[in-house]
Design a protein around this nucleic acid. Structure first.
Lengths: 216, 216
DNA sequence: AACCAATCGTGAAATATTACACGAGTTGGC
DNA sequence: GCCAACTCGTGTAATATTTCACGATTGGTT
C-alpha cells in the first residue's frame, strides 16, 4: 500500500523537509563512502541532530522502504533522494562573474552535487575574458546569449556586483535559462516561470551571531 | 500584556523566524538606503513573498510597534532587528584558509552585516603565508593559538579542506573561540558550549535543482 | 469637527508539523 | 524451530505555525 516506488506522484515537500533531506543526503554520501551498506533512522537522526521518528516520516513520504532490524539500504536511499532533488541528471549551467567567489564556485564540487554541469563561464571585464578557468576559458558576456541558446544551458549562476545583476538576469532569461542562482544582494525581477534562488553569504554569519548571542 | 518593550526577555525565535527576519533586515536596509522613513508590513511582505499578517506577527514578537496609517519606522526597526541578531556590536573573528573561497569572504561585506570584524587570517601553506589580504597579512596557522587568545577573537571561520577541518576546529576551541562557521563538508566535534554553524554552498544549488524539477 | 481610508494589533480557527506510543515484521542465536 | 531483540511503519496526541476576520488607532480631507 505504501506506494509503488516507480510512480512520481510525490507530494510537494515543505521547505523544512527539503532542508532536512539535504542533510540526510550528505550523511548518506558520507556513510556510503565508508562502505556501509545499511543505515538506521536513528543513525541518520543522530548525525543531523533530530529524532529517528522524524527521519522515518520524511523518508516515508519519499516512498523509501527500510527493513526492520536492518535499516535502509544506503545506495538505494541515496539514489532515491538524489532523484527527488533531480540531481541525478546533470543539467548544463553557466556562471556569470569570475571574481573570487566565482573562482571558488568553479573550483568546487558543488556542480555534480547539485545536479548541474558547468558548461560555460562569462565575465564582462576584458582583462578576465580569456583567462583559464579549470578546464575552460572565460568567455565574454557578449557571447552569453548565443552560447546559452546553442548549448541548451538551463541555469545561470549570477555572481556579479549588485548593479549588474538585473541586466545579467535579463540576458539569461532572454536566452532561455529556466533557473537562476543569484548571489547579488538585490531582488531580481523575472517572469514567473523562471525559478530564482537567492543566496547571501551573510545569512550564515548572521545566524551564527544570533545563536552566539542567545546560546542555543 | 504583550510585553514591556524595554525588557530583553524575548522568546527564542524559531529557525523559520530567524530566516524571515534576515530577509526583512535586507529589505529594510535597502529601503533605508533609499531614504524611506516608514514601511508597511505589506511592503515587507511583498518584497519577501509572504503575507502582511505574518510580517506583523514576527515583528510583534520582537516588540516592534508600528503606527496605523504610517507603518513602521525604518531606522528604528532596522536597529531593533540588528539588536536581536546581535549584529550591532562588531565581535572580532578570524578566518582560517585563504583559498578562493576565503578570498571571496575576506573581500566581501558580510563581516559588518553579520556583526563581526575580521581581525586575522590564517593559512597553513607557507607560500600563502605573508600574502597581502585586503589590509592585512595572512599569518601562519602556528600563530593562531596566540593571536586568538591575545586579540580575544570570539569566532572562527573554517574554510579549509575536509581533512584539516577537525584539527583547525580543535585549535580554535582550545584558543577560546565561542563560535565556528564551518564551510568544510564534515561534521566537526566540539564542546557543547561552542556554537557551530555549518555551511555548504551546495545546498542552494540542490534547492534550485529541486525547485526546477518541481516548478514552484 | 467629523468622516474616510489605511494600517496596525490580536484573538480564534484552520492547517501543518512534531513527538509519542505501540503493533508488526525481521534477524540472529540457541 | 522458537525466542528475544531490534527497527520500521503508522495512528494518535501535542505543539507550532499560518491564515482569517475584525476591532482599534491614526492621518488626511472636507
Amino acid at each position: 500500500m505504501a506506494g509503488f516506488c516507480g510512480m512520481n506522484g510525490l507530494k510537494r515537500l515543505s521547505r523544512a523537509s527539503v532542508l532536512r533531506l539535504e542533510l540526510y543526503l550528505e550523511v548518506l554520501e558520507h556513510f556510503g563512502k565508508e562502505g556501509r551498506a545499511h543505515i538506521t533512522s536513528a543513525d541518520i537522526g543522530e548525525a543531523v541532530g533530530i529524532t529517528d521518528v522524524k527521519v522515518r516520516q520524511d523518508l516515508l513520504h519519499l516512498g523509501a522502504a527500510g527493513r526492520p532490524k536492518v535499516g535502509y539500504d544506503v545506495p538505494r536511499l541515496t539514489g532515491l533522494i538524489r532523484e527527488v532533488f533531480g540531481v541525478d541528471s546533470l543539467k548544463p549551467a553557466c556562471l556569470v562573474g569570475y571574481g573570487n567567489l566565482g573562482r571558488a564556485l568553479v573550483g568546487s564540487n558543488i556542480w555534480t552535487k547539485g545536479g548541474f554541469k558547468l558548461a560555460a563561464i562569462f565575465d564582462g571585464d576584458p582583462e578576465i575574458v580569456g583567462t583559464e578557468a579549470g578546464e575552460m576559458r572565460v568567455r565574454s558576456i557578449t557571447e552569453l546569449f548565443g552560447v546559452v541558446k546553442s548549448e541548451g544551458i538551463q541555469a545561470g549562476v549570477v555572481v556579479v556586483p549588485a548593479a549588474a545583476a538585473q541586466e545579467v538576469a535579463d540576458l539569461l532569461v532572454a536566452a532561455g535559462v529556466q533557473a537562476i542562482w543569484n548571489f547579488a544582494p538585490v531582488k531580481i525581477m523575472t517572469p514567473e516561470t523562471v525559478v530564482v534562488e537567492n543566496q547571501s553569504l551573510a545569512w550564515g554569519l548572521i545566524t551564527l551571531s544570533y545563536r552566539l548571542k542567545s546560546r542555543g
